[in-house]
């Protein structure tokens, strides 16, 4: 009952209210304890100390975010530098953005990355949703086995997947190209779609699809008119996630791409090997803006469907 002396961070007021709840008889003595004239001042000082403590926490948090975002901030800042220097900021200009817009190689790479992301998104959605539907509704042993195998790409180191994909394409005599990147990325992304969708499908009420058939819909119509609309928020959320993952992907793209064009991530990597060009800063800033835009979109999608919170959809709950 002498919590007043150990002065918890939440302060004396809180201590009094928590201790007097179970034993009312002790409450008055706790509230005024210890019964010396100097006690209230001491308590006040402690309360002040307690209020100061969060400042330390705030400082740590600030430091954390600074370390996390400072490098990114430097990239953004120097993308607007009028000089080629990466250490001295001279003046604000859009010089490197203009340079980027006139760099056909980088633009080709950006175009390819966008195409690959869109195709991988569409392909993995179709296959991933179908797989998730099949896995949830399958009652056979093969089904539960497939459900486990499906998870393997998520835990395989990406470099293994990348090398394996490359060896497969080489072994089959397929020339590495934009198409091989797309195939590899689709394969890699299916698991993500399936994992997100599977829990949503399992949570669906099976009677709803039966109701659609009861009302005259064929099995296919029931899927199209009732089941897919119910899954739409999850499908859109995984679409955004896959787009972002594939657009950012380097390892898989590096091993499966042809020579020309190369995906943006691979292109940036090769460019940096020959010395850092400030154009890369501009590209990086634009990619950052694009990613933030996607996150905002991912958060907004569930709200459009009248649900609260967006990240729960990304985690598939």
């Amino acid at each position: 009952m002498n919590n007043g002396n150990t002065a918890s961070t939440t302060g004396a007021r809180n201590t009094a209210t928590t201790t007097d709840a179970p034993s009312t008889a002790h409450a008055p003595s706790t509230a005024h304890a210890p019964g010396t004239p100097g006690a209230p001042r001491k308590q006040r000082r402690r309360r002040r100390a307690a209020e100061r403590r969060p400042r330390f926490a705030i400082a740590v948090t600030a430091l954390f975010f600074a370390l996390l975002y400072l490098p990114v901030g430097v990239v953004v800042l120097f993308s607007f530098n009028s000089q080629k220097s990466l250490t001295v900021f001279e003046d604000v200009s859009l010089r490197w953005y203009t340079a980027f817009l006139h760099d056909d190689v980088i633009l080709d790479s950006l175009g390819m990355s966008l195409r690959v992301s869109l195709v991988a998104m569409a392909g993995s959605l179709v296959l991933g949703v179908a797989l998730a539907l099949g896995l949830v509704r399958s009652r056979s042993r093969l089904g539960s086995f497939a459900g486990l195998v499906m998870l393997v790409p998520l835990i395989t180191p990406e470099i293994v997947t990348g090398v394996a994909a490359m060896l497969l394409f080489k072994g089959l005599g397929i020339t590495l190209s934009t198409t091989t990147v797309m195939l590899a990325e689709i394969t890699f992304s299916i698991s993500y779609v399936t994992v997100i969708l599977r829990s949503r499908i399992a949570a669906l009420n099976p009677e709803v699809e039966e109701a659609a058939m009861d009302l005259g819909a064929t099995r296919r119509q029931a899927l199209r008119l009732v089941t897919l609309p119910a899954l739409l928020p999850s499908i859109l959320a995984s679409a955004v996630l896959i787009f972002a993952l594939v657009f950012d992907d380097f390892v898989l793209a590096y091993f499966t791409t042809g020579v020309d064009p190369q995906p943006l991530s691979v292109r940036i990597y090769s460019a940096i090997r020959f010395g850092v060009q400030p154009t890369i800063n501009a590209v990086g800033t634009l990619m950052l803006a694009g990613s933030v835009g996607l996150i905002v979109l991912a958060l907004a999608i569930p709200r459009l469907f009248g649900r609260r919170g967006g990240l729960d959809l990304l985690s598939g709950k």
């Binding site: 009420n205 709803v208 058939m213 009861d214 009302l215 005259g216 099995r219």
Partner: peptide, 29 residues
Amino acid sequence: PPNKRNVNTVFQSYALFDHLSLADNVAFG
């Protein structure tokens, strides 16, 4: 199959179509 029978069911869970309005729910059949 159910869609070839002239019977309709009121399910225990009601099984309403949450993405459709009441009018569209009723109009489904």
